[in-house]
Design a protein around this nucleic acid. Structure first.
Lengths: 236, 236
DNA sequence: TTATCTTTTGTACGATAGTACAAATCACAT
DNA sequence: ATGTGATTTGTACTATCGTACAAAAGATAA
């Protein structure tokens, strides 16, 4: 039998708590953790600084809650997309589908609650750059499983490439992904306005295309030995 | 006639100033700008907080001086390597040489004064993630020229690829580069110890190999249209 | 030595940080 | 309507921040 939810369970103004989370997410993602004060967050959310303490106890607690909010849904969505991608028969197509399954949820619109979202991905990028401790802990225990699943799936599509190389290349993928969300304006600037770095669809296509090719590159071990390495030494 | 340098020109203890710069560089690169206090820097350098103010006036001034120290030499070295790379006859080899010319100076040892260095690159990565204003200004006016030179050189090796695609892919390269320096341990972790993410030579080879392949990927425009896009929609 | 200039030290000031907490306010069950 | 627990507000405390500045120390030229 389902009962009416009591006031203990139903937040009266879920808007406030949610507004604080959203404001913090945005501010952290654009300015870093330490550059943003609790008062900044409260003001952006139209709340009182005390409210932040009430809902999340500490500033770290607020960050932790942001991660908790997103990690589950994001990994779920990635798993779904990965499972579907694995069912693609053609090896080349499957590789692309797997990469896409990894990339797409990271770019989905920021206001999207459950999809992960570009804003949360940008937040993760910034936290990883700052070496934030809270983020580091929750990331390692939440995303490594997913990362391994993707690496395995990619390895299945490219059996002749050593796993080590695939790890490196998927690492590069994540770096490129992060950076695309952190500094999209740089793309617009360098392309002299011919490309819009902020357009997610554009970024996804470019990233997927480039990454698939990178994964398909010959393995490192047998690729280099016979060839001379050109133009590395210090003197021109 | 050359005269003995007066005390006005010769710093008596260049060690202190240099030690502060080095300490700040390291701390900023690992923790971000706002997480590090002037007192932290002074302590790490074995100096007094007041010394920092004396030499660099403000905390921003200190960051600015770090950039000034590195930008010139780094761009010079890149230009040299790029010029040499451009002289490589074979198109495939030339592309690799150009990419290497871009990557190598960014990874050279941190204690190396004039080469740019991994530490300074990591610093730039962190500052860009934090959206640091001082860094943004000096970066845009110092590195965009270099970036364009590399993009042009790559375009010369790949005339059939639209410039827009090359801009995107070089953007991905920089993101991968940054991330490799920011979180090298992740590579070690995900490869279960089979790769050392902190080994520069390793990282360089992996990055160059992957990036060359990415640049060589078919152009986006003509690559996609006839094909159905597999497995993107929300439902599995 | 003494005078002068550079560098380092010690300390202090105002601003702002995170957080705690009591009072006020609100929404709802009764 | 009223009481009750959840939330919001206002404010205050302590710590630490960036920076200023006077005094001490060190080095050099005469």
């Amino acid at each position: 039998m389902l009962r009416k939810p009591t006031s203990k369970e139903t937040a009266r103004k879920p808007n406030m708590r949610e507004a604080i989370l959203a404001a913090a997410e945005e501010l952290f993602a654009t300015n870093g953790f330490n550059a943003v004060s609790v008062r900044d967050i409260a003001q952006a959310a139209g709340a009182n600084p005390g409210s932040v303490t009430y809902h999340f106890k500490t500033k770290d607690g607020l960050l932790l809650e942001i991660y908790r909010r997103h990690c589950g849904p994001m990994n779920l969505r990635r798993s779904e997309l990965l499972a579907a991608a694995k069912r693609v028969r053609d090896l080349q197509d499957r590789l692309e589908a797997v990469v896409r399954a990894y990339v797409v949820p990271a770019f989905t619109s920021g206001s999207d609650l459950a999809g992960g979202g570009a804003r949360f991905t940008r937040l993760r990028a910034v936290m990883s750059a700052e070496g934030n401790e809270v983020a580091r802990k929750i990331i390692a225990q939440t995303f490594d499983d997913t990362s391994h699943a993707f690496i395995d799936a990619i390895h299945d599509s490219l059996p002749h490439i050593p796993r080590t190389d695939i790890v490196w290349r998927s690492h590069f993928l994540l770096g490129a992904l992060y950076y695309s969300l952190v500094t999209p304006d740089r793309v617009s600037r360098l392309s002299r306005g011919e490309a819009d770095g902020g357009d997610p669809a554009n970024a996804i296509e470019q990233l997927v295309q480039a990454t698939v090719a990178a994964f398909q590159a010959p393995a490192l071990d047998q690729a280099v030995p016979a060839k001379r390495r050109p133009v590395v030494s210090s003197k021109t």
